[in-house]
Design a protein around this nucleic acid. Structure first.
Length: 254
DNA sequence: ATGGCTACGATCCGTAGA
């Protein structure tokens, strides 16, 4: 199973690029974030026409997540059960015996802000949710935009970013708490080129300078990690005209 | 130099992203 995640930053703007990428990369499953559209306006017919079933939790203007799959999606659950949240950030589904959780973790805006506090509360709720999911589903993948760069090697300029949102110690501790459940960062299961990132600021020629962060991740339970044969980030879509600011991340499971 | 783009939904600027 080839499992991908991509923060598309508006599904309606990025649909042509998404269709092109699906045709080339042929993922079995892809988790999408920042749809920025309500479910009724999600381009379901276009995606079904190229062979993907869609589970969608949409929201106007902000957030919005979806899972696309070439095989049927079962047991679809939107949101974190028990965690009341207006923001559509989570959707889960079972695909061929694998539980897939698609996440768009909060940005956090600035350390100490209300949004930062929300981000940490949200991660605590996600951790409890994933702990319960792991008990039910040994084959568990969690893919999405985590808005956390786990280590300094995931940051183009660690000095400049030190203590900032996305790299602050409480955020990294929240990330490690997910790993402590028994999840592996699929990207780090393999040798990787240095300075590989998944997001680059639109401003200041961020991509051309490779001034990026690795914040989009595919986490795998032990059962899946043991069968994982590749982990990568595909920078190609970031080079296109009018790109998303994020690139797709992928894991291939034998 | 704390900005700089992009998308959205409201109007021609404010909010949010990261």
């Amino acid at each position: 199973m080839k499992l991908a995640t991509w923060n598309v930053n508006s599904i309606r703007v990025r649909l042509p690029q998404l269709l092109d990428w699906l045709a080339g990369a042929k993922p079995d499953v892809i988790c999408l974030q920042e749809l920025k559209t309500e479910a009724a306006k999600f381009p379901r017919a276009d995606l079904e026409a190229v062979g993907y079933a869609c589970a969608v939790s949409g929201q106007k203007t902000y957030n919005g997540v979806s899972i696309l799959s070439r095989t049927p999606l079962a047991e679809v659950v939107a949101g974190i059960p028990g965690f009341a949240d207006e923001q559509k950030r989570v959707i889960a589904a079972t695909v061929q015996g694998t539980r897939v959780v698609c996440v768009y973790c909060p940005n956090g805006q600035a350390v100490g802000s209300d949004k930062y506090e929300y981000k940490l509360r949200w991660f605590a709720a996600l951790r409890e949710y994933l702990a319960a999911e792991l008990r039910k589903h040994p084959r568990l993948a969690v893919a999405g935009d985590f808005n956390v760069a786990p280590e300094d090697r995931d940051v183009h300029d660690p000095k400049a970013w030190e203590g900032q949102v996305h790299v602050s110690e409480p955020e990294r501790a929240a990330w490690r708490a997910l790993l402590a459940l028994g999840l592996k960062d699929s990207f780090r299961l393999f040798e990787q080129p240095e300075k590989t990132y998944s997001w680059w600021d639109y401003r200041m020629m961020g991509f051309r300078r490779n001034a990026g962060l690795r914040i989009d991740h595919v986490l795998l339970s032990d059962a899946l990690a043991q069968a994982c044969v590749a982990g990568a980030i595909d920078k190609a879509p970031r080079k296109l005209e009018r790109p998303s600011d994020h690139a797709p991340a992928l894991a291939e499971i034998a």
